[in-house]
Each structure stands twice: as structure tokens, then as C-alpha cells.
Design a protein around this nucleic acid. Structure first.
Lengths: 161, 161
DNA sequence: ACGCATTACTTGACACGACAACCAATGCCT
DNA sequence: AGGCATTGGTTGTCGTGTCAAGTAATGCGT
């Protein structure tokens, strides 16, 4: 027999679904308008900008951005065509490809970061109390634990304990 | 001067971003595999199945699914081609189009609902304590308040107060 | 009652992601 | 050392979403 959702469960789920449907579009639009990159492209550039030598292997980049490898391949190629990233085979393992942020890519991240940060603050962070921010961390961790138990797809952060 | 995110804010944001990136895919896959519909298509059918006479105007459907009108137009057309929905001009206002769930569509929702429910439980609801579910509701409401202040895009639920 | 703005949607072109097939380098096993 | 599975990544095709433009009915102002 199926256990239906009670009111509390339904309320939580419906709102989460609405957030998942709306928030990505809002953030995407801001970045597109102001800096001509998608939200995902921005994450790619941002992760590279924080990496040693501004360089990461494709697989590492995929994990840090929660993206699949084919997706990353396409995205990085487009970024390369635009001169924001360069690719070169890894010397240690010639199967692997390294992606490095160019100066132009670095400049774009620097220019885009403040506006994006404001958007994230405006639609998420500043809408929440400090308590809610901590709650959100716990909730998201619990969900990620179910969705990606091994953390393969979200090596971006250190999960609690 | 830009206010950067502190540790607490960053932790919350990074995890929310990962959830937004991963969760839709997980739910999509389950529905595709088991019932050959996308998550968005499922919401469309589900909203219709709860509406009086299983019928809604396109605009109302868009609001309830947090989708844009062009998107809905495409999706409903595809659903119509598959015989799950039928469209007919609204008698009262001939600009408007009504979408009604067919018997086949109704059957699909009935068949798909239990599996989808299990997926939602498995990846979200059962991962959270009752307390966290209430927290999530509050957090999502706060975000939606910023992202869609007038509630145009999320007429699906009654927001608090 | 005429015209213009608005509402409600549809359509077409383009961009992006997913999936599957593919290729190349590596490393292990014997 | 030869063979085979595995790892790491790219490519092509297809489905789907978005955006901009277009159409048609409505309603409001004068």
C-alpha cells in the first residue's frame, strides 16, 4: 500500500519543486544578461579560478560542478572557442585532458563575480536568517546523501562528518 | 564594496546549488524509465488530474507548474499527440485554450503516481525529520518570495500569511 | 463603433543537455 | 610481452527549453 504525503510533507515538497523550477532560471538570466555566460559555465570558470595553476582535469571539473563528462566536454569546447579556457593533454596521463583558465577567462570571472554574488544574496542568502542557512545546509546534506551517496557528483564541498 | 559569503552562507549556497543540479535529474530518470514521462510532464498531468473536470486553461496550468507559456504549449502538444491530453478552445473566451486529461492520461497518472511518490520519499521526504520538513517549507517560501514575489509562477500552493 | 492596447496562446529557430557509441591510453594478469 | 578490461574523454544525434515573433480574440477609451 502506498503511503501518501501528509500536509507537512506535501507542503515541503511542493515548495522545493517550485524552487528547483524557478531559481535556476533566475540565476541563469542574470549571468547571461550581465556577463553572457550560463550559470553552469560560470561554475566551471569559477572552479578553475580557484584551482592551483587555474588548471583541472576534466573529471575533477565534472565532479566539482556536479555535471556529467559529456556535458562538460561540450561546455569546455564552447568556452575554448570563446578564448576563456584552453585545453591540453595531461603530460602524466595522456588519456586525460587538462583545462586551464586563460587570462580572458580569469578577467571574466572577476568581472562577473560581484553581480552574481548579489543575485545569489538577493534571491537566496539574504532571504534567510542565519538559523535558516544552517538548517538549509543540513537539509541539503540529507538530500545529497540520498541522491549521490558516494559524493562522486558533488566533490565540491566537505560533507559533515 | 562587495560583501562576500561567509562560511555559513557559502555552505548553504553550495549545497543548494548541488541539489538543484542533481535532484531534477534523479526524479526525471525514474519517471522516464517507469512511465515514459518527464518530471515536468508528470506535473502537468498531475495538476490536470486534480482540477475540476480534469480541465484547466493553459495559463492556469503554467502557473501551477511554474512553467512558461511557450514551454507549456510545446509540452501539451506532445502530450496531445500521445493521446494523454486533449485541447479545445474555451467557450467563454475564445482566445483561451483548455487542456483536459483524457482517460489514457488519467490512467497514466494513476499508474505512475506510486512509483514517483516512492522516489520523492526516497530522495527527499524520508531523508528529512518532520522538523526539517517544516524548516524546508519556511526556507523555500522565503526564497520564492524573492524569486517570484507576486506568486504568478507558483500559484500551486497557498503561501503562509 | 472604431482603433489600439492587452491578453492568451502558438510557432519557428536556435541552444543546450542526455545518452549512446566511439576511440585512445593505461594497467593488470598471466 | 600479449590480450583484455578499465579509465578518460570526445562526438553525433535527438529531445526539450527558451526567446522572439506572430496571430487572434477581447476590451477599453473616445
Amino acid at each position: 500500500m502506498t503511503r501518501w504525503l501528509d500536509d507537512r510533507e506535501m507542503a515541503a515538497w511542493v515548495r522545493l519543486a517550485a524552487v528547483m523550477e524557478l531559481l535556476p532560471g533566475v540565476l541563469d538570466q542574470q549571468l547571461r544578461r550581465d556577463s553572457d555566460v550560463t550559470h553552469f559555465e560560470y561554475w566551471v570558470l569559477a572552479m578553475l579560478s580557484e584551482a592551483p595553476d587555474r588548471t583541472l582535469r576534466m573529471t575533477a571539473l565534472a565532479a566539482r560542478t556536479s555535471g556529467t563528462l559529456p556535458r562538460l566536454s561540450h561546455v569546455v569546447k564552447r568556452l575554448e572557442d570563446r578564448g576563456l579556457v584552453e585545453r591540453f593533454p595531461c603530460p602524466q596521463d595522456r588519456r586525460a585532458t587538462n583545462a586551464r583558465l586563460t587570462d580572458a577567462g580569469w578577467a571574466l570571472v572577476q568581472q562577473a563575480a560581484p553581480g552574481h554574488l548579489e543575485a545569489v544574496r538577493g534571491s537566496v542568502i539574504d532571504a534567510l536568517t542565519p538559523e535558516q542557512q544552517e538548517q538549509l545546509r543540513g537539509i541539503a546534506d540529507a538530500i545529497l546523501e540520498r541522491v549521490d551517496p558516494d559524493g562522486h557528483m558533488s566533490a565540491n564541498y566537505a560533507r559533515e562528518s
